[in-house]
Design a protein around this nucleic acid. Structure first.
Lengths: 350, 350
DNA sequence: GAGAGTTTGTATAACGTTCTCCACGCGAAG
DNA sequence: CTTCGCGTGGAGAACGTTATACAAACTCTC
């Protein structure tokens, strides 16, 4: 037999013909819609498997749903996002939905482009992880497409939110370091984008928690904050700045593990040992923090739970089972490892 | 004025009306098709920007292209894939194409599901990074959708391929270790999947390169291969097995940095120092290898170039500028860091 | 100026779904 | 025997785009 040059896709019409019914009937079975007898359902299902039918998602997008969930993230290198994603995946595993990830980078413009792409592809729902896109744009998108924002604390009735109690997390670290005897505790946090109009980003919350905790311990005038990109290089720069200053902190905490490792590199560069000369704490408790050669004290944010919660909330909205916005907040947990210890010299007094 | 309850999307019809032309004309301008005057193009372009028109990708999918490229990867935690992805992104930055990532996990079944999802969403082209999906299935998909396979060396005229000369890379490491004085060099490599029917996966090539290099140095009877999943835990298990055996290797090389770090953890567990007691070499030269506290000798695979090349090849196919399959091979480069050194004790003789 | 080409713009039929109506048949109630 | 209601299946119009086919309007050439 001559091989079929380009065998066509099997469509709903083929299934209908095979089963001897109308396409409308097949569609109903497909969507579990009301008004099909058991016999009909049986018959159509049989034909579908016989022909190995798969609905054409692009065509579905024209009228109804595409059964696609878009996840926006800035940086696939941050393995914390991988934890979140695993949560999303686990939650959606047995559903009909497919997850498509858009890795947009840090630029607000690029992120907006990716979000628009997802809307244009008629995705059913969006999970935006700490978007740097201007808030107004996210709100506009959320008006038409169910959306969950992860990270930012800014609530809105247009979208659901899942965030971590970052201020409490920062306080955990400060308390831990103060208990060890530290007084000069510096914070390395992301610069954020003033133009995005989000008022309560993770880094803002973190800074607030840090400052308040320091004040609570009577260390208000020891507050020292250094802005740096959450990357190895960003952390290194911040570390060099902090660790080569006249009044050198005895402990440095950062808003991301990856930045903490950069600080570590800086400590290495200027000949300081960790933790003997300087204690370092990260944030996110990513896998790298637990490496044998790293052992970084960090704050666990339950990324998996955040992802799973986000997915659950989103599907509720997509399927119209809820129409009021929800904010979920996760509780952070301190994980002490060997990168933090008591300061050897007495902390310098003012 | 009453706010529009749910302002509809602006469609090609709106643009046509606004410009006072037919939808067909607008479509032509959109696609840079033949048969439009400069004046027409100008006029339509103006209307498009005036109305902020964006073509509906889902609708496009029904007839033509969706301008979407799907990238399949098993594991977002492997930052080597992030390098590849950056290459793809850079190559496609100024094009009309959007990249959507499907993170499928290691299961062949899950991967197949994601690939099918991409096909159903009418994506224009697929980049599959080291798919564990059975080869036949990939070939079937590639017959209808332009596809580039990254990693596997199995050539086919159905799809393009981009791979690294893994055998040469393994030889680089063996040569380096032998030059340092090692003789008992063990390899930790991925078990792979026998059911996938790929004959030349990266791990198979790597094993071949290792074995041949060992034989070339007259160390054929020192060959020791341990299969382990490319993960921290997989590496740790393999490491415990190797390092607590009677005939303990003085050097361990792995097929992935993440596995090397697991071996490192195992060394730690059994009280061996790296590199004094055992040298460890990774593969991929991911960012973690360069961390201050890690400094892992590794093999750089030019992931960025691989991704960029794959994207370029794919677009050529999508746009019909080429119809013969191409295989591209990258050259690996050894990056020596401090996790490898000369063995302190003379290697045990047989 | 007539015929032959060449541009340029339009009408319209797909593409594969969904979903609103509507028709049909049947049993129960009046 | 009507009338009503209900459960079931089907007709057919969208949805927003592409691409083919063709008509109309120009531009040459002899």
């Amino acid at each position: 037999m001559p091989e079929p040059e380009q065998r066509k896709r099997v469509t709903i019409t083929d299934v209908a013909q095979h089963a001897g019914v109308s396409t409308a009937a097949v569609s109903k079975v497909l969507r579990n819609a009301y008004g099909v007898s058991a016999a009909m359902r049986e018959k159509v299902r049989a034909s579908m498997t016989a022909l190995d039918y798969r609905p054409h998602a692009a065509a579905r997008g024209m009228r109804g749903r595409t059964y696609t969930i878009g996840v926006l993230l800035d940086n696939i290198r941050n393995t914390f996002f991988a934890d979140i994603l695993d949560g999303v995946r686990d939650q959606l595993r047995d559903s009909d939905y497919t997850i498509m990830i858009g890795a947009a980078g840090f630029g607000a413009r690029d992120q907006a482009k990716v979000i628009r792409s997802m809307v244009d592809r008629q995705m059913d729902g969006l999970i935006l992880i700490a978007p740097g896109t201007p808030r107004e744009e996210v709100l506009a998108v959320a008006r038409d497409t169910p959306t969950v924002v992860i990270g930012h604390h800014d609530a809105s009735d247009a979208h659901d939110s899942v965030a971590d109690a970052d201020a409490a997390g920062a306080a955990l670290v400060v308390d831990h370091l103060v208990a060890l005897g530290h007084r000069d505790i510096a914070l390395v946090s992301s610069p954020g984008s003033r133009a995005s109009h989000w008022k309560q980003t993770p880094e803002i919350e973190l800074t607030r928690g840090y400052t308040q905790a320091m004040e609570r311990h009577g260390l208000g005038d020891h507050v020292q904050i250094c802005k740096a990109a959450y990357s190895d290089e960003g952390g290194r720069k911040a570390g060099l700045h902090l660790l080569s200053a006249a009044r050198r902190p005895t402990a440095v905490m950062t808003g991301a593990d990856v930045a903490a490792l950069g600080v570590w590199r800086a400590a290495h560069d200027v000949g300081l040992r960790v933790p003997q000369d300087v204690s370092i704490a990260g944030y996110n408790n990513t896998a790298v923090a637990d490496l044998a050669t790293v052992q970084l004290t960090s704050v666990d944010q339950a990324g998996h739970d955040m992802g799973a919660t986000a997915a659950r909330l989103l599907i509720e909205r997509v399927e119209g089972r809820r129409d009021r916005a929800v904010q979920a907040t996760m509780t952070p947990r301190l994980v002490v490892r060997s990168s933090t210890t008591a300061p050897t010299a007495a902390p310098e007094q003012v």
